[in-house]
Structures are given as structure tokens and as C-alpha cells.
């Protein structure tokens, strides 16, 4: 039996002349966390919206979108009933308190008040918000609002959770808490789709990532494998850049030089090579570290801003 719960094939979405999503295909397995990465304007949010039926893909007949056996284009209500959504902005009802915010949403799923009350207590406990139950939204911090939106998305025990930049703008403690909750949900069998700009977030919690740019897929796979296959394991960052002549005298055999916003970076397959280079440079103003997803991301999506960013 196949474990694939989401199949997307050759989907497109245009806004006038702008192609927001361009011939994109991917598959997601049950209980996996699938991350979408890409610069602002890469089409991530549009893609998420198409998956739960609030954006409609172009030419639905020529493409496939199968979400737990349903097509969001024609079965919007059924897809929404099995899916929880955490949108980019915290669109809570600011006049109401925490409990009431969750209560009014429990109605959308046809939950009885008693059953909803129990579920709300459970979720407030899960997201460590129990003490804030009677507090108005205006009095909540950014991290609390975010956790409340996550609680709201979980009211009806969704099989699939869509998280559109769940931790943007939050402090490290809250980010780690949210990551831990995502891991727990995964264990419970929830399939998670996530967009993020934080490479460490994708690395920490995603089983698979898809990096996209201008609506197109660039690469896809488990984060560790993508790193191994697409970028050298070590990088040296330094503010020191010599003149061309001096640089030419350095032994850069087996080292790839690259620049991000005019700051040079030196990539290599082994640590010792970079140490040697640092010695030649004669500087303490350098840092040699393992490459991460961010290095890979910058390499493949370009180092300069495009007009949509």
C-alpha cells in the first residue's frame, strides 16, 4: 500500500502575465513534514492556498492535485474539513479572548459546545496557553498569538496541517517550542506542509524540502542529502578580500570562491584546505564552519534580489 497522501502534478497558476507557480510537481507521504523554501514571491503561499482550495489552479483538467483522495479544485469543503491552516498573518478576532476565539471556530467544524470545550482545554495545554484562556487577543504577545492560531488550526484534529511561515518574527524559545510541537504532531500521524525562510527550521523539522524560485522547482529531497550532493561540506567566511594580485598568490586549489553581497566565501571539501588558506590570508577575521542549507539556498536561488523581493 502506498503511503503517498498528496500528489501534485504539473500545476500552474498565473496572475495576469505573472506565473506564480510554474509546472510544479511533488509528492508528500503520510506523517511527513514537507518544507517549501524559496525567496519572497517564489509562489509558496499561492501553492499552499491551492492545496486547501482558496486559490484555483490554471487549467485544472490538465493537471493533478490529489489531497487525501480529494481534488481541492472541486471538493473544496471536504479538503478544508480534513486540513488545518496556519496562515502567514495572525488573523484572530481581536475583540474576543483566547477561549472565545477557539470556540467560534469549533462551530465551523460542527463541534458540540461540551466537546469543543474539552478540545480547547487540551489544545491550550498542548501549546502552553492554558493560563491565557481568558485573556483578550490584544494583550497577547506575538508568540502567544502564533501559538493560538496553531491551536485554532488543530481544533478538528486535521490529518494535514498547512503552516505558512509559522515562526517568522518569533523569539528562539517560541520557535523551538513550535518545532517540538510539530515533531509531536508528526508522531501522531499528521502530515505537515510548511513554508519557511529559516533554513535551520527546515533542516530541523523537515523530512523533505523543495526549494522553488519564481514558481519553479529547483531541487527537492531530504535536507541532509541535498547538502551532501549540492554543496561542499565546509565554508570559510571572511571580511578580508585582498586585491586581485594578492588573491592570485593564495593557493586556492580545490577551493571554490563565491561572493554574497560582495563578501567573499571560500568553499572546500575538507577543513584542512580552508585552514591553510586562512593562514595564507594572515587574518583572524574569519570563520570556518560546516555549510548549511542557507549556503545551498543562496547558491541555487541567486545571491541578488530579484524584482519581486
Amino acid at each position: 500500500m502506498t503511503n503517498t497522501v498528496i500528489t501534485v502534478e504539473k500545476i500552474n497558476k498565473s496572475f495576469g502575465a505573472l506565473k506564480a507557480v510554474n509546472n510544479l510537481s511533488f509528492k508528500v507521504n503520510r506523517a511527513e513534514c514537507f518544507g517549501f523554501l524559496g525567496p519572497n514571491g517564489a509562489g509558496k503561499t499561492t501553492l499552499m492556498q491551492m492545496l486547501y482550495g482558496v486559490a484555483r489552479r490554471d487549467d485544472a483538467q490538465a493537471s493533478t492535485m490529489d489531497v487525501f483522495g480529494l481534488d481541492p479544485y472541486t471538493q473544496e469543503l471536504d479538503v478544508k474539513a480534513l486540513c488545518g491552516v496556519v496562515p502567514q498573518e495572525d488573523n484572530l478576532d481581536s475583540q474576543l479572548n483566547v477561549y472565545q476565539n477557539l470556540l467560534i471556530y469549533s462551530r465551523f467544524y460542527g463541534m458540540e459546545t461540551k466537546q469543543a470545550g474539552e478540545r480547547i482545554d487540551e489544545l491550550l495545554d498542548f501549546l502552553e496557553l492554558s493560563e491565557k484562556k481568558d485573556v483578550r487577543i490584544k494583550k497577547l504577545s506575538g508568540g502567544m498569538k502564533r501559538r493560538l492560531v496553531i491551536a485554532r488550526s488543530l481544533l478538528h484534529r486535521p490529518k494535514m496541517l498547512i503552516l505558512d511561515e509559522p515562526t517568522t518574527g518569533l523569539d528562539p524559545q517560541v520557535r523551538h517550542l513550535i518545532w517540538q510541537k510539530i515533531r509531536e504532531l508528526k508522531k501522531e500521524g499528521v502530515t505537515i506542509l510548511l513554508t519557511t525562510h529559516y533554513m535551520d527550521e527546515a533542516y530541523q523539522i523537515c523530512d523533505n524540502i523543495l526549494i522553488m524560485n519564481q514558481g519553479k522547482r529547483i531541487i527537492e529531497g531530504p535536507p541532509r542529502r541535498l547538502l551532501e550532493e549540492n554543496i561542499e561540506p565546509y565554508v570559510m567566511e571572511t571580511a578580508k578580500s585582498g586585491d586581485k594580485e594578492l588573491e592570485a598568490s593564495w593557493d586556492t586549489n580545490g577551493i571554490r570562491r563565491d561572493e554574497v553581497q560582495n563578501i567573499p566565501r571560500y568553499y572546500a571539501g575538507d577543513f584542512a584546505r580552508l585552514k591553510t588558506l586562512a593562514k595564507q590570508m594572515d587574518t583572524d577575521d574569519m570563520n570556518i564552519r560546516r555549510t548549511n542549507l542557507e549556503d545551498l539556498f543562496l547558491r541555487i536561488t541567486g545571491k541578488c534580489l530579484n524584482e519581486k523581493q
Partner: peptide, 13 residues
Amino acid sequence: EKVYNAMLAAPIT
């Protein structure tokens, strides 16, 4: 407030 966007994530048209 973008409240409609929140409501439309629930199963309503």
C-alpha cells in the same frame, strides 16, 4: 483584520 481569510480556511465557501 483578514478575518475572512481565517474563516475560509474552515470548511465554508
